[in-house]
Design a protein around this nucleic acid. Structure first.
Lengths: 357, 357
DNA sequence: CTGAAAGCGCTTACAG
DNA sequence: CTGAAAGCGCTTACAG
């Protein structure tokens, strides 16, 4: 399938359509008509131009094309600073879908302080839409959306739900944690160690709410049933943080019957620490993750987790944004929730009979 | 640090510097001089323009700017289709360094069949350099580099060594495997199960060569010491493939004393399968990975691996490419090898006394 | 500070 | 098929 490139002869540097037309030996107008596939041209002329393209490598200047009215066919994507595996999957999926529709993707990482600059760069490049993937400062993102609206550029937030007036596609994190908690409740768990659920990020608040809803439905109270030791360590959502947290729970001699981790890495780190301390998972204590990464199947025991359904998310996102391009801005913000999928594996099971020491 | 966006009043749609100058009530020339920070302007005038920018959200059209001679300050990055964690780290590191120098990054995934299109897109966008990250079809990439050369666009391959006339920054995979093999030889290992080392990709050939060199130096022969069962399964460099391979070795009743895996995922999958089959790692059999991902510290036992030194790689890459921009193309291709770092952990140890069954 | 003009690299009627 | 012209949105001398 690879298209071989012919060896380039020593051709004079072709810098513009003027040079190129001269090289071909045709009028600039004619060349332009060939390049744009216009009708009424002799086959021989078309071939002559195509051969010259191969010979010279001439590529028209996109900047001139757009000035003349050609669409930029470019979408800007802003990423959260933390490039986690699920975020990368979403980016890759979106890029592929846009590319398939002949859109180019301009990607920037949104860091605190560079937001304005990034958006202005996108606008100067006349992107036809902007997609944000991940979690951002809420005030900041609201400002950016304002800016996009006033230049009639459609936008979409992927993941970050709850921003007023923003178009959003997001995992239903409330439902995710509700289902996960129900699963644990059904197994008799009544005390839950929450790993890395502190903080005021929207996603965490949603997830806490989901836990709370499940507990309330079972006539339990969030404050009574959950324990948090996040404040003991510098937070860093990785294996090691999970290990530290679980260790602290062990040392506190006040272990919950289930540990619910913010993500798979933390859950795996926690399992590790628990096993090192002599506890059996899930016999002595259950552990759950989030994101359903491939590693969940490779741990001992395999890890119960929640799948974000990235493909579904990206599908909805791409369709939405492609549908908005070229349309007048909608007045009502669009909100699409993606249903998560609980994946039960070996790490969660019936609660231990006696409270652990 | 977040720059608040002022609420946008109902301003008339500003589409060009003409509109904008009219809105400000100044001559287009004056506005342009303010925008470009030219001297000899009253403070009051400058402020007036800046206020109008805030009010209208006016952003000059980058396409017009570039036509007038402004640099595009854009670098194109081509990625291999398979977005592995090390590849993403390299991309993220490079993007950050380019952004810090005020370069925008245009990212495309190179799939078989779209290579020409991608390069032509980059050239039409007048990127100032192109970086390839990962492994590609060798003929295809040679053609692309040809094309870039003839339009005087500097390029750099990250990872894929061995392409003639290409500028390259790559991990010294030969040295990596030589050191890893020496480490195992020193522990008395003489039989090596190679997991996923079949195929003719350049990186695999290099890595096999490194193994071979270490064996030769110990008066051993590659063919005698190594075993491969890759042909038994559909290759897919993930946990599950490693598990399948290790299982097949177990079933073959001809186990090597050490398993050397192409990457960490495969190694972890293999460890898992070995442990399920009742073998102890490393007491009965040693296992090694590659890439030194975070999980290496979270497995039981922790996994011996090789670190690609992504930061060093990206550093060299960014410096090289930024140094080439605006310079005449070098005649001699540049080649910089990055020294890998062997990270010995628990999964590799002294060879078992008796051959395993 | 203003205003008219030229020109960057293209495309697109338009008259031949 | 050719050739001259206009114009996209900018910047930059230039004369006022």
């Amino acid at each position: 399938v690879s298209s071989p490139t012919p060896p380039r002869k020593n051709t004079p540097q072709i810098r513009s359509s003027v040079d190129f037309a001269r090289y071909v030996g045709l009028a600039r107008t004619t060349v332009s008509r060939v390049l744009n596939g216009q009708p009424g041209l002799k086959k021989k002329t078309i071939e002559r131009v195509q051969r010259a393209i191969e010979e010279t490598g001439f590529v028209p200047n996109a900047y001139a094309l757009h000035l003349k009215g050609k669409r930029t066919a470019t979408v800007g994507v802003c990423l959260e600073t933390l490039l986690t595996p699920p975020l990368i999957s979403k980016l890759a999926g979106l890029q592929k879908r846009l590319r398939d529709q002949n859109y180019a993707t301009l990607i920037e990482v949104l860091e605190p302080g560079n937001a304005r600059k990034v958006i202005r760069h996108f606008l100067s490049m006349r992107v036809e839409a902007v997609v944000f993937i991940g979690y951002f400062d809420e005030d900041q993102i609201a400002g950016l959306i304002n800016e996009l609206n006033s230049s009639a550029t459609p936008h979409l937030l992927v993941d970050h739900a709850g921003i007023r007036n923003a178009n959003t596609v997001a995992l239903d994190r409330i439902a995710a944690m509700r289902e996960l908690t129900e699963h644990l409740l059904n197994h008799g768990h009544r005390t839950f160690g929450l790993l890395a659920f502190s903080g005021t990020v929207r996603s965490t608040r949603d997830r806490l709410q989901g836990i709370g809803e499940a507990l309330t439905a079972a006539d339990l109270e969030l404050e009574q049933c959950t324990r948090v030791l996040d404040y003991l360590h510098v937070r860093n959502n990785d294996f090691d943080y999970g290990r530290l947290l679980a260790k602290s729970f062990v040392e506190s001699r006040n272990l919950p019957s289930a540990m619910v981790a913010l993500n798979d890495e933390i859950a795996i780190g926690a399992m590790h620490a628990l096993q090192e301390a002599g506890f059996r998972v899930p016999h002595d204590i259950s552990v759950t993750g989030f994101n359903n990464q491939d590693i969940c199947m490779m741990t001992t025991p395999t890890l119960t987790s929640v799948d974000q359904r990235v493909e579904a998310t990206v599908d909805v996102a791409a369709k939405y944004i492609l549908g908005q391009i070229g349309q007048p801005l909608k007045e009502k913000p669009a909100l699409r929730m993606i249903e998560p999928q609980l994946v039960v594996r070996e790490s969660s099971g019936p609660a231990a009979k006696a409270p652990l020491r």
